[in-house]
Simulated assay, not measured.
Amino acid sequence: MTYRKTVTKVIYEAEGSYGNKDQMPENLGAAVEWLQEKLDSLPEDMREDAILEIEAERDYDCAVLKIKIEGRRPETDAEQMARLGAEARHRFGLAMTRELQERAAYEALRKKYGDKS
């Protein structure tokens, strides 16, 4: 069984104080409405597992918020096949690079010490 990765899409990420343009409102009702708008902007297949991260820090007389909203969903079969194909091509490329390096080292040693076969 092949591991199915999670596809993520960050739709909002900001740091600032309340009242900044497009920052989450301080009023609870307005904040809920703002969050719903952000959730609705996600593709439908990412809404169920969407996450909200909020960090608040006190900076003198105001709170500084760090907010991140991210949609998540399992990768599709097509995305999984594309990823596995890219990983296989990458591994093949590494193997070929390693083989070319080994051949170059072999040829350098052969030139230095001669062919003793």
Rank of each mutant, 00 (worst) to 15 (best):
K5G: 14
P43A: 05
G85E: 04
Q36V: 10
D22L: 09
E48P: 03
N27P: 11
Y3C: 09
A86G: 06
D61C: 02
C62E: 03
A63K: 08
F92I: 08
A88W: 03
H90C: 00
A95I: 02
W34H: 13
D61R: 04
I54M: 06
W34E: 08
K112T: 00
V10G: 02
Y106S: 04
F92W: 13
K112D: 01
L35N: 11
E107P: 00
K116Y: 02
G93A: 05
E53S: 07
F92M: 14
A56R: 13
M46W: 13
K66E: 03
T6V: 14
E55R: 14
T8S: 07
G85D: 03
G29R: 15
Y18S: 04
E15Q: 09
D40G: 05
T2D: 04
H90Y: 02
R73P: 05
K116L: 06
Y18H: 02
D49Q: 14
N27Y: 09
D45K: 11
M81H: 04
T2V: 12
L42G: 05
D77W: 09
A108T: 11
K111C: 01
A105V: 00
K111L: 00
A30M: 12
A95F: 03
A86R: 12
I54A: 07
E79D: 05
F92Q: 15
R58N: 04
R89T: 06
E102T: 08
A63N: 06
S17R: 11
R91K: 07
D59S: 14
R73S: 06
E44K: 00
A95Q: 09
Q80C: 10
E48A: 15
Y18C: 04
K112M: 01
I54D: 06
E26Q: 15
D77L: 12
D61A: 06
A82W: 01
E26A: 15
A88H: 08
R89H: 06
G71S: 08
P25G: 14
R47G: 10
M46Q: 13
K5H: 14
Y18I: 01
D115R: 08
R103P: 04
M81Q: 10
L100T: 12
G71M: 05
A30S: 13
E99Y: 05
I69N: 02
S117P: 00
Y18P: 00
W34D: 12
C62T: 04
Y18V: 01
K21E: 14
K112Q: 09
P25C: 14
D22A: 11
L35T: 11
T97N: 09
D22W: 11
L100Y: 10
C62L: 00
I11T: 07
K21Y: 15
K68Y: 01
L52P: 01
R91C: 00
V7K: 03
A108R: 14
A82S: 09
K112W: 00
V64N: 02
E102S: 10
R89N: 10
D77Q: 11
G29F: 15
Q23P: 07
L94M: 15
W34G: 12
K68W: 00
L65F: 02
R110V: 08
R98M: 13
